[in-house]
Nucleic acid binder design. Structure first.
Length: 554
RNA sequence: UGGGGCGUCGUCAAGCGGUAAGACACAGGUCUUUGGAACCUGUAUUCGGAGGUUCGAAUCCUCCCGCCCCAGCCA
């Protein structure tokens, strides 16, 4: 129970109040993505809120694709979104809906509004409509077509859908108030002519509904109680309410909350798409991306993401959450459940001069010291080992507890070793290997005489390990808010991906993609789908906290 | 200079007239066969500012300041 005391939030309060005073008797929410891109962690927040509120109040949540603009939507996105929501851990049961399934009903309702004198066909161009809309401080001016007869509107609207009017030549508009201080109420467009085949309805429709017109109807048809959306739709709520009131149909309550912003990354679908298209990243599932597909490939767990969404809360203030919180949630989740292993990323050879040639010992190592019931594994030990370059310093600085000439450290689960000689390449001066001696009396990594060693290194037997590629990720952008300066593309971090070759325990040489582990003292990793037997690829999901790096950095 | 929102610790965020939760981050410390984890301690006399109401205000009122959103036939 990580969250003993879950804070309230204004949405919970509102829903509770609506149930208490009878405004609604059951809670039905919906997650309404447009299938024009992949889901990202910002959507995860919305999903957790939409499904979470429903669960909390014993209601249901629909998955509904808001597919009202076929020019931008694709089946690939529909499939990916469903997979991502399911992966995140939410179930919409049989309640998979599509706005496009409601096009007929919407059309009939449009005719109802026309007949009520509340909607009209406008012949003005997009440009003219824009100009006549007025400005923030000046009212708009009515279209010359605003007072057409109902009969003419009806016939024109039918012709729009019949396909004998060119794209963009006419729109259907709601007749509300061209002088409204809320621009959304200045006769908003309800339908545009777009002779584009739809991924689900084919070429039946020549006109497609606009968001403002469609969304409330979709909610109403599904008898949604609470339509939860992000802040920028607050201005649209009067219009949402207007359509529903004019039609006299079921009227959900729209409540807006602040979107999630995460520092050092970008959340705009448009910008994510752009990075995918110009190949700044390998695809929608590039592990550096905040997409759910990317986070998944990177090694984030659904549990950690849900925990994150719970911790960030829900409010109406625009805010930017620290990426460190997301990382914290992942570490906390993985620490308890993931097996440990040893891997050397940047190898330095150690030769134990007093260890018998050809001898191999099978040493016991904990699979997960946080959960001893997970048992032990055997790790082969021999005369030649790899250790991490960072675990040796020829000239150790203060507070450096690791190996150095004349020093003794522990090889985890193995023996204490002492460094006696540093072997260098005579040409370059580069350290090629270390000659050390081991203390046979310290088998397992502890000594009977109570002698203490400050440092513990991980290691791997050169003869028993397997080569592997490690992909180390850093933040995708160099500054907290990538939109600052000359645009997000100018703030890309050139070092966001580093590929290095090292060694892993043989037991991991056939790990399936997605397999997660902690490489001791390094971080949490997961096998990438690019892996092949004998040529494993591991993504570093998140490093372990490194207080030595912090000491040394300052 | 129109309308709609928002301003509580470095970052999120509770608080709903009774005297500032929690989390992350940060800083110390204990412990440790991961310089990990765990555990302890510290960190807003103050809630954008100024007035006012009240025995009492982050919470109510007034004015001011700052930030975000809206002029797509996108969602």
């Amino acid at each position: 129970m990580p969250e003993a005391s879950v804070s309230s939030n204004f949405i919970r309060d509102a829903v509770r109040a609506d149930l208490a005073d009878g405004r609604f008797t059951k809670v039905i929410t919906r997650f309404p993505p447009e299938p024009n891109g992949y889901l990202h962690i910002g959507h995860a927040k919305a999903i957790c809120i939409d499904f979470g509120i429903a669960q909390e109040f014993g209601g249901t949540c629909n998955l509904r694709f808001d597919d009202t603009n076929p020019s931008k939507e694709e089946q690939e996105y529909i499939d990916a979104i469903q997979e991502n929501v399911r992966w995140l851990g939410f179930d919409w049961g049989a309640r998979l809906y599509f706005a496009s399934d409601y096009f007929d009903q919407m059309y009939r309702w449009a005719i109802q509004l026309i007949k009520a004198g509340k909607a009209y066909v406008d012949d003005q161009t997009a440009e003219q409509i824009r100009i006549k809309r007025g400005t923030l401080t000046e009212p708009g001016t009515p279209s010359p077509y605003r007072n057409r007869s109902i009969e003419e509107n009806l016939s024109l609207f039918e012709r729009m859908q019949a396909g004998d009017l060119p794209d963009g030549s006419r729109v259907l508009r709601a007749k509300i108030d061209m002088a409204s201080p809320n621009l959304n109420m200045r006769d908003p467009v309800m339908y545009r002519i777009m002779a584009v085949p739809h991924h689900r309805t084919g070429d039946i429709w020549k006109i497609y509904p606009m968001y403002d017109w469609a969304h409330g109807l979709e909610d109403s048809i599904e008898e949604i109680s609470h339509s939860l959306c992000s802040l920028e739709f607050e201005d649209h709520r009067p219009l949402y309410d207007w359509f529903l009131d004019e039609l006299g149909i079921h009227h959900p309550r729209q409540i807006e909350f602040a979107r999630l912003e995460l520092n050092y990354t970008i959340m705009s679908k448009r910008k994510l798409l752009q990075m995918v298209e110009i190949k700044k990243v390998s695809g929608w599932d590039d592990p550096r991306l905040p997409t759910l597909a990317g986070l998944r490939r990177r090694g984030f767990t659904p549990e950690s993401i849900r925990d994150f969404c719970e911790r960030i809360g829900v409010a109406k203030a625009n805010s930017m959450v620290d990426y460190a919180l997301l990382e914290h949630c992942l570490r906390e989740d993985l620490n308890k459940r993931v097996p440990r292993s040893m891997a050397v990323l940047r190898q330095l050879k150690v030769v134990l001069t007093n260890y018998p040639e050809g001898q191999v010992e099978e040493l016991d190592a904990d699979i997960n010291p946080e959960n001893l019931s997970s048992g032990k594994r055997k790790v082969p030990f021999s005369r030649e080992l790899w250790i991490e370059q960072d675990d040796f310093r020829e000239d150790p600085p203060k507070k450096f507890f690791r190996l150095a000439p004349g020093r003794e450290v522990r090889l985890k689960y193995a023996y204490y070793i002492t460094c006696n000689e540093v072997v260098k390449n005579p040409q370059t001066g580069e350290i090629t290997e270390l000659h050390c001696t081991y203390d046979p009396a310290t088998r397992g990594g502890w000594s009977q005489d109570g002698r203490k060693v400050k440092g513990t290194s991980h290691w791997i037997s050169t003869a028993h390990c397997c080569p592997a590629e490690f992909r180390l990720y850093d933040r995708l952008f160099t500054i907290p808010n990538p939109d600052e300066g000359n645009g997000f593309l100018s703030n890309l971090n050139p070092d966001s991906l580093q590929k290095i070759s090292g060694y892993i325990e043989a037991g991991l040489s056939n790990a399936p993609a997605g397999n997660q582990c902690q490489f001791e003292r390094q971080g949490y990793f997961c096998a990438d789908p690019d892996s092949r037997p004998g040529a494993m690829v591991f993504n570093r999901s998140v490093s372990l906290k490194d207080s030595w790096a912090k000491i040394e950095g300052n």
